[in-house]
């Protein structure tokens, strides 16, 4: 694959992966990419575990681009409780494409298991976001454990791996290139295709897909 848009072959694209793999960034980039191509899409923030960094943070940016955001009603308020967005059903029956940003382990993925039949009926593709530089899930074997955990909790299948290896602002060409053999290893042991490797948009690296960093900067 050479672009985010190619991920969205089905009604629903599920972006999952360990905490800190950058799945929210991948999900938001996919939404922005679809919107830029003039496609109708919505993004659902289904991270019911961690209230600190989530798609809901980017609501304003996304809505400006024409992306509908489905966020828990109380996200980022005093009662940020594990709850699904009120208009969650739009994920399955809204027109155009849907993206689900799911919390990063078995507990986070339990939310998928809850609507397991709906995802199958609507049609979905689920992708695993891998980051070679996240401590516990750096090794392909560690990442595979989380992948299997998500599969068990969701009852859904993965369709590919996105290598989103990064060191935040210190990401450089070497870091990206060094990560590729590990992503390939994960692809091999998981029997899933490695779809593409991302690179931050300030780097020009052959055979990578550019990704914008949408996290809030404090300084």
């Amino acid at each position: 694959m050479t672009s985010f848009n190619e991920l969205a072959t089905e009604k629903i694209t599920i972006i999952s992966g360990p905490y800190g793999s950058g799945k929210t960034n991948v999900a938001v980039n996919l939404a922005m990419s679809l919107a830029e191509s003039g496609l109708e899409c919505r993004i659902a923030d289904l991270d019911i575990v961690n209230p600190y960094f989530r798609s809901a943070d980017n609501k304003e940016l996304l809505e400006k681009m024409g992306v509908t955001t489905l966020v828990p009603e109380f996200a980022n308020t005093s009662v940020d409780i594990p709850a699904l967005p009120q208009n969650y059903q739009l994920l399955f029956n809204g027109s155009g494409k849907s993206i689900a940003d799911v919390g990063g382990d078995g507990d986070g993925a339990a939310v998928l298991g809850l609507s397991h039949d709906d995802y199958i009926e609507a049609g979905y593709k689920m992708y695993f976001v891998y980051n070679r530089y996240r401590y516990i899930t750096a090794e392909p074997e560690g990442a595979l454990e989380v992948l299997e955990e998500i599969k068990r909790a969701s009852g859904l299948d993965f369709h590919g791996i996105i290598n989103n290896s990064n060191l935040g602002l210190e990401t450089d060409e070497e870091a990206i290139l060094n990560s590729i053999p590990y992503a390939k290893k994960l692809s091999e042991i998981s029997n899933l295709p490695l779809l593409f490797t991302t690179a931050p948009d300030w780097l020009d690296i052959e055979n990578t897909v550019k990704i914008k960093d949408i996290t809030k900067k404090l300084f």
Partner: peptide
Amino acid sequence: EKLLMKGNE
């Protein structure tokens, strides 16, 4: 090799 970690971790 550097790794990406949360402060808490």
